[in-house]
Design a protein around this nucleic acid. Structure first.
Lengths: 136, 136
DNA sequence: GATTTTCATTTGCACTTTGCAAGTTACTAA
DNA sequence: TTAGTAACTTGCAAAGTGCAAATGAAAATC
C-alpha cells in the first residue's frame, strides 16, 4: 500500500525519539543492550550481541564501557572458559527500570485519551505486528 | 502497564531492523534525511535537521556527504542568502523509492497472513498511535 | 595424545558519526 | 551605522562502527 510507508517512518521516528529522550546516562544503543540483558538470566556475550543485532566486536567494546560504568559485570562461565556471562549490577538494573518507567509514562500519556477498547486494540495490534515482523 | 514495555522494545527493534536491512548504499540516518526531504518541497537545512531530530552541525556534514554522493543538491535561496534549500537528485529519489519499496514489501509480508479486517485494524492502530505520540 | 579445526571473545586499525564551541556570512532592528 | 541575531560551516575531541587478525579454549580428527 501507499499508506504504509508514511506510517512506518513516522512511527519509527516517534518511538526512537521517545527512547532517546528517556535515556539520560546512557546512549540508546547501550540502553538496548542493558534491556536485553535484563530479559535473560546470565546470557553470554554472543547471545546478547545477536539479540541487539550488533557486530560482536563493537558489542565487546560497549560491554567494556558499560562494565567501567559499573552497570553490568562479566563473569567467566565455569563450563566453558571462552564464554563470559553478563548480568546487570543493581545500578544497571536501576537504570533499565528508570528508562522503562519514562517510556511507559510517555506511551501511557499517548494512550490516555483513548477509551479502554481503543487502547486494547492498539496494544494488541502492536503485539500482533511485532510478532509477524519478527518472523520475517 | 507492565505489558507495554516489552512491546515497545521489540517493536522498535523489529522496525529498526527492517529499516536497516532495506538500506543498501546509505546508512539508516542518511535514509531518514533523504526521506524527510522527499516529503517537503525544497526545505531548508534547518527544517530537515529539526524533522530528523538531529544536531544541525552533524546534519550539515551529512548533507555534505550526501551531496558528494550526488543524492541531493543544495541551492541558495534567493530571498535569504543564509539559507540553502535541499532537493533530491533523481539518483536520490530513486534510492528513497527503492528503500520504501523494500520496507513496504516486508511490512506487507508481515500483514499478509492477516485477514482484511485485522490488517485494517493494525494499520489504523499504528496511525492512531503515531498521531498521539507525535503530540507528546 | 598430538594436531587441526572451530568457537567466543578481544584488539588493531581506519573510517564514520556525533556535538559542543567558535567561526563566517547574511539579514534585521536600533 | 552598529549591534544583534539567524543559518550554516568548521575545528576539535570523543564515541561508535566493522573488518581483519590475534588470543585462548573447547571439540574433532587422526
Amino acid at each position: 500500500m501507499d499508506t504504509i510507508i508514511p506510517i512506518f517512518h513516522s512511527l519509527s521516528k516517534s518511538m526512537r525519539n521517545i527512547h532517546k529522550s528517556s535515556c539520560d546516562e546512557v546512549s540508546v544503543v547501550q540502553s538496548s543492550i542493558l534491556y536485553e540483558i535484563s530479559l535473560i538470566i546470565k546470557p553470554s556475550m554472543q547471545t546478547v550481541a545477536e539479540a541487539v543485532g550488533m557486530d560482536i566486536t563493537t558489542f565487546s567494546r560497549q560491554i567494556g564501557t558499560l562494565e567501567k560504568k559499573e552497570l553490568l559485570i562479566r563473569t567467566p562461565y565455569e563450563g566453558d572458559r571462552r564464554i563470559y556471562l553478563l548480568s546487570l549490577t543493581s545500578k544497571g538494573s536501576a537504570i533499565v527500570t528508570s528508562i522503562n518507567e519514562i517510556i511507559a509514562a510517555k506511551m501511557e500519556g499517548a494512550l490516555a485519551s483513548m477509551n479502554d477498547f481503543e487502547r486494547e486494540t492498539v496494544l494488541r495490534s502492536m503485539y500482533v505486528l511485532e510478532e509477524k515482523l519478527r518472523g520475517s
